[in-house]
């Protein structure tokens, strides 16, 4: 009978002593197992610290601006450039500037590509063809990168009659921001202030670069030599390569 085999095997059971030994054996083995998992975690701590340091260092290296480009026409836009010549932020300094930066993908592109995109944008190209005045200022510490950026700006400006390229420094940029002006307008403000000490930054804010240039030109005719550019290097439309 099949039942005889079934009953015979049914009478065989694991001994309680064997089960107890196995419980102890498993407890010992699994305790060892969990201890072993702690060790690699401890070993990982210095590696994780190094990784964090590397990431933080990398973040600092990448996201610290080493130069800026200020572009003024009436939209005023400021690009922060990192040491790898990439745009890490693009800020519109007035309403038109904000609209322009929102419509163009500038962040993380190369500075040359960013400048080309801005100058070739519908808004800027229509303004330029309408005889608007464009000012591009490269703000840096006067090192090789500043020279590279200026060269790129000059290349971009070369095809536009009313585009001008300048260099500047961070102290002046800081002063411009304190007046609530972009760099290009601040520079024009300083020129106008020499001829008309009563002029205020608020008046300048709403004016286009063309209006500012016309006013500078007007005061130059009235008071020769009174509207000189501030004491920093500039290249008036001599930007062609």
């Amino acid at each position: 009978m099949n039942n005889r085999i079934k009953e015979a095997f049914d009478s065989v059971h694991a001994e309680e002593s064997l089960k107890e030994k196995t419980r102890s054996f498993l407890a010992e083995k699994t305790a060892g197992h969990s201890k072993r998992t702690v060790v690699p975690f401890r070993k990982l701590v210095p590696a994780a610290a190094c990784l964090l340091l590397f990431l933080a260092g990398g973040h600092w290296l990448y996201f610290t601006p080493t130069a800026s480009i200020s572009i003024d026409i009436n939209p005023s836009v400021e690009l922060d450039i990192n040491r790898f010549d990439r745009v890490i932020s693009a800020e519109g300094l007035n309403d038109d500037g904000e609209k322009l930066t929102e419509s163009l993908q500038l962040t993380f592109t190369g500075y040359s590509e960013a400048l080309t995109r801005i100058l070739e944008s519908e808004q800027i190209s229509s303004l330029l063809s309408d005889n608007a005045q464009l000012s591009i200022t490269v703000i840096g510490s006067g090192d090789a990168q500043s020279a590279r950026l200026l060269s790129a700006a000059e290349t971009c400006a070369a095809g536009h009659e009313n585009a001008h390229c300048y260099t500047g420094n961070y102290q002046e940029l800081e002063a411009a921001h304190q007046c609530g002006l972009s760099y290009g307008k601040y520079r024009a403000f300083l020129q106008l202030q020499e001829a008309d000490p009563d002029i205020t930054p608020e008046e300048i804010q709403g004016m286009t670069m063309r209006e500012l240039q016309d006013r500078i030109d007007g005061c130059s005719q009235q008071v020769p030599d009174s509207c000189q550019t501030p004491g920093h290097g500039h290249h008036r439309n001599g930007c062609s390569p």
Binding site: I5, A8, S11, V12, H13, E15
Partner: peptide, 17 residues
């Protein structure tokens, strides 16, 4: 003998298996 007491009948079957 080891897995506990086994009856003669069951032993015969298990021995056969």
């Amino acid at each position: 003998d080891r897995p506990g007491p086994i009856s003669p009948d069951h032993r015969e079957v298990l021995e056969a298996v």
